[in-house]
Design a protein around this nucleic acid. Structure first.
Lengths: 221, 221
DNA sequence: CATAAAACAGGCAGATTAGCCGGTTATTCG
DNA sequence: CGAATAACCGGCTAATCTGCCTGTTTTATG
């Protein structure tokens, strides 16, 4: 399994343009650093206060930068939001790959589907996914956000699909089933996250178990 | 199948206190009417602008009432929000029952589980569920909203569970499986709603089909 | 009919936010 | 070294929202 190749390919496909290559000049490096600090602060704002809590003032305060610096990097709020959207999708890919490849290194090449499914469920429980959820829901009612979110979400989905086909050549003839299983896991996991406060851990675990069985059954037919 | 009994029991269990019994005096009836008009306007606000768009000014404008009347019925914004939460859960129960019982009247008593699952998927595509989704996500980051939302969500869940056991006595000995199937459908359907803009209808339909199979399999073991 | 109470109307102040702008410091390059 | 450029600073305005407040109209009651 070309784990390293897979990682590089997916990350390259989703990397935001400002981080295209490492700058060498002090100014640009400092600038990128400040920019990243603001993006991470924006993610914090999303996680703790939702999309409505993602205000320029809050982000500037959390990032410990002046509102002037804020305005220098992101002229308007929507510029910041668009950058946050790209950042979140990139981080989601990065974190999932880190976790999945680590799990794959520990265990063998068997039960790869189970391993990937479990890694996806873990990725759903991260702060990055919480931020993604806020953006996804807000994009449903905010046209400006949706203009930035939907293209990024589609790109993420395409990269995900293409990589699945590339990375599991042994199942290339049943990639339809793989895609279905992936979509299924995505839907179940996000739904479970949404209902966790009411369901509680026990019911969550039972639904997860049932989902794994349904996915496994896809490959035995 | 005592459909009417089921309907009355569930609606009574979830009915908001202000609508406990029909008032007879003009004033109270008019008051309840205005109140309902504001609650429906609030749902409109939620659907079109998200939880952040649920402002007292917007609601008053959509409901075509003065901000004074608004303040008379709901002293603070959180009072309005709490009433909207109860209203939404009540409407969700009501609309689901209307749809499910109508579908059950058309078709026979067979495949009740399939019928209920399909009715649930339809209920997820209503404007009331869109409003519920906004509230559920906002409640994750807004303590004040969560204080009103979580108890209501738990009550809804308890009523749902109890009614399932009451209404399907023929499967009383496998109510664990029924509950699991219900939780599973709830998770899948909400997850699909969330990802529909990216998935598209074809992939949605395939996941729905797979889900139905997994649920059906629960009752054959 | 008179008085009380409920429903309704709309203006005002305080707080918050987005966007904008002139000024300041630090870095780069000729 | 000096000019140009990039990064950064913080105050100002307009708009919006919430909560509160004083009146006005409509309905109920003795």
């Amino acid at each position: 399994m070309p784990g390293s190749t897979m990682q590089k390919r997916m990350l390259a496909a989703m990397r935001p343009t400002p981080l295209a290559d490492e700058p060498v000049r002090w100014q640009q490096r400092k600038s990128a650093q400040t920019r990243l600090k603001m993006l991470e602060a924006a993610v914090d704002c999303l996680v703790s206060g939702g999309y409505a809590g993602l205000t320029t003032a809050q982000v500037a305060e959390r990032a410990a930068v002046s509102r002037g610096a804020m305005h220098h990097h992101f002229a308007t709020r929507i510029d910041l939001v668009a950058a946050v959207v790209d950042h979140i999708f990139y981080q989601r890919i990065r974190l999932f790959l880190d976790d999945y490849l680590a799990a794959m290194a520990q265990r063998g090449d068997e039960e790869l589907i189970d391993l990937a499914t479990q890694a996806h469920w873990r990725s759903v429980q991260t702060r990055e996914y919480a931020a993604y959820l806020e953006l996804a829901v807000a994009a449903r009612t905010d046209p400006e956000l949706n203009a930035a979110f939907e293209p990024a979400a589609r790109r993420y989905d395409e990269v995900w699909t293409a990589e699945m086909i590339e990375s599991f050549p042994q199942w290339r003839d049943q990639w339809h089933a793989m895609k279905l299983g992936s979509d299924f896991a995505i839907a179940v996991h996000s739904g479970l996250l949404l209902h966790r406060p009411v369901f509680g851990q026990d019911r969550i675990d039972m639904v997860l178990k049932l989902s794994m069985q349904a996915i496994s059954a896809l490959y035995k037919s």
